[in-house]
């Protein structure tokens, strides 16, 4: 078998670990997308979630921090998870896995995780209320972040 023409790419078929990680990230981003899409739809199509003794979703979702300018935070989540999902699917279906794209994915995952951490901190320290839908999104972004770091480490080692 001739050597790969580009030292920065991994040959296809790749090792199973990389594919499993890519599929895992796709799954996490799909969950995050569905969650964010629900919140975005709620923002535009429905009356507010009722105020409930059991949770503070209404407080979080109607707070001043729920918007970035004219854009609901939930919509930025939709965009983020869709970008990650299709980016990962591109990597999964590509003939060769370019390491720079894997690192770009890790960078994307880091940005998403950092944003989620900021939003969760705002809920805890400024709004003093937690929303389970936002928590699910934070969990998705955390799992994407961990998986993407693992993926880039595995790719670096040529797993």
């Amino acid at each position: 078998m001739p050597p790969s023409p580009k030292p920065s790419t991994l040959p296809s078929p790749r090792r199973p670990l990389l594919n499993k990680l890519l599929l895992a990230i796709a799954g996490f981003s799909f969950v995050g997308f569905a969650d964010s899409a629900y919140l975005t739809a709620d923002h535009y199509l429905a009356l507010p979630l009722p105020c409930s003794i059991l949770h503070g979703c209404d407080i979080v979702l109607r707070s001043a921090y729920s918007m970035i300018g004219p854009i609901p935070v939930a919509m930025t989540g939709v965009a983020f998870y869709l970008v990650v999902l299709f980016f990962v699917l591109y990597l999964y279906t590509a003939d060769t896995l370019e390491k720079r794209l894997v690192y770009a994915l890790a960078g994307l995952g880091t940005i998403g995780f950092a944003m989620s951490a900021i939003f969760e901190s705002i809920q805890i320290y400024l709004i003093h209320a937690l929303c389970q839908y936002c928590a699910l999104s934070a969990l998705s972004s955390a799992l994407i972040f961990i998986s993407a770091l693992w993926l880039s480490r595995a790719a670096r080692k040529g797993a």
């Binding site: 799909f30 997308f33 569905a34 899409a37 629900y38 739809a41 709620d42 199509l45 429905a46 009356l47 979630l49 009722p50």
Partner: peptide
């Protein structure tokens, strides 16, 4: 499917509470 399901649920007034 996700977009359609969420949209249909809200527009038919069955989502939320």
């Amino acid at each position: 499917v996700v977009v359609a399901a969420i949209g249909a649920a809200f527009l038919s007034g069955n989502a939320g509470s």
